[in-house]
């Protein structure tokens, strides 16, 4: 079913675009981070669709690596948000500008 392949690539592009819009629009650091997760999921979808189309089983392995990196990123990122929250009692990214110079 090549329809599934082609529409999945479109879906992947859509999810990635929604992720980009989330990163551009949100102020809350956690919402912003969730948009990044959405973009990673879009990349996963593209990997799996290409594996399906080309008949390659390695696509699943690459998805596993993406998930590992996403888990590591979520762990460290959320720890950083906790210490950001300790410093200023909020996590609005536009108001955390101590490195602004």
């Amino acid at each position: 079913m090549q329809e599934i392949f082609v529409s999945n690539l479109v879906l992947s592009a859509l999810l990635f675009t929604i992720g980009i819009l989330g990163v551009m629009w949100k102020r809350n650091a956690i919402s912003l981070f969730m948009s990044v997760e959405l973009m990673l999921n879009a990349a996963n979808l593209a990997f799996v669709s290409f594996a399906y189309q080309m008949g390659l089983l390695s696509g699943g392995i690459l998805v596993l690596f993406i998930m590992t990196v996403a888990a590591a990123e979520a762990g460290v990122g959320l720890a950083i948000f906790i210490s950001m929250f300790r410093a200023k009692r909020h996590i609005r990214v536009d108001e955390h500008d101590m490195l602004h110079g």
Partner: peptide
């Protein structure tokens, strides 16, 4: 969606 593409393992890990 992954299940529809017959990639059960990736779907469960997801």
């Amino acid at each position: 969606n992954f299940l529809l593409m017959r990639q059960e393992f990736v779907a469960f890990i997801q």
